[in-house]
Amino acid sequence: MARHARALGDGAASPRPRGAAADELYMWHRSRRHTNTNKRLCEEIWDKGSGYTRNDRDVLSFFFYNAPPGEGPVKKSFAEIADQLEMKAITVGRCVRKLETGNLLLPTWKVGRTTFYRPNPLLNYDGASAQQRAAAFGVPVPLVPYPEVAG
């Protein structure tokens, strides 16, 4: 405990909850939300032979870091995402379609012709572990390497 308090730098320890409370959303001291990420799968996605390009990985990372807690979609247009990532909106659209084909991004809901996406909860989830297990039930398995490369 003292070691943890020293790591925070101010002597105020923020102990991890135990028992039933351990499955609640955990916020680190003086920080924002944290996500549960499948490191093995991410290593495979970031591997050179995965079939996913640097742009694909940038777009996927954007969805990781901008997804709201739970199963909600990232509520941004391709143009807004492109502006933040300094790429063209058409490139973002191509990357999203490729990530959707690989089951890394899942379509959540549609408004007119616009589809909103969220990261696959088997890959990345912002919430408690019990919520992640429930969200991951029945979700398609991410395809790594990309089907084009695997086939």
Rank of each mutant, 00 (worst) to 15 (best):
A135F: 05
D83I: 03
A7E: 14
E44M: 11
Q132P: 02
S129N: 08
M1E: 12
S77C: 06
V74E: 01
R133P: 01
S61P: 07
R18S: 15
N124C: 15
P73D: 14
H29C: 02
A89I: 04
P140D: 10
Y146V: 00
G127E: 06
A134M: 08
P142A: 03
E24Y: 09
V96A: 04
P69G: 10
P119F: 07
G102A: 01
R113Y: 13
P147W: 02
R94P: 00
L123C: 05
A135P: 04
A22R: 06
C42E: 11
E80W: 03
N103Q: 11
T101F: 06
G151H: 06
P140K: 06
A7N: 14
Y26H: 13
W28V: 13
N36K: 12
P119W: 03
Y52E: 01
Y146I: 02
R32L: 15
A128S: 10
V139D: 07
N38S: 07
E44P: 01
L123K: 02
S31P: 02
V144H: 00
R118A: 09
V139S: 06
K88D: 10
P145L: 04
D83K: 11
A67R: 00
P147V: 06
E86T: 09
G72S: 04
Q131C: 06
G70H: 03
L8I: 05
R97P: 02
N124Q: 13
G11I: 07
S50R: 03
S129L: 10
A79F: 09
L104V: 00
E44V: 04
G72E: 08
D10C: 02
H34A: 15
D56V: 01
S77Q: 12
T53I: 08
Y65R: 14
G51S: 03
E71L: 09
G127A: 05
A136P: 02
V111F: 04
Y26F: 15
G51L: 05
E148F: 06
A2C: 09
G102C: 01
A89M: 06
R40E: 10
F64P: 01
M27G: 12
T108E: 12
K76V: 08
G138Y: 10
I90Q: 11
L105D: 00
Y117H: 04
F78S: 12
G127D: 03
N103S: 09
T35W: 11
Y65I: 15
M27Q: 14
K110G: 08
I90V: 15
N120V: 05
P69N: 10
A21T: 08
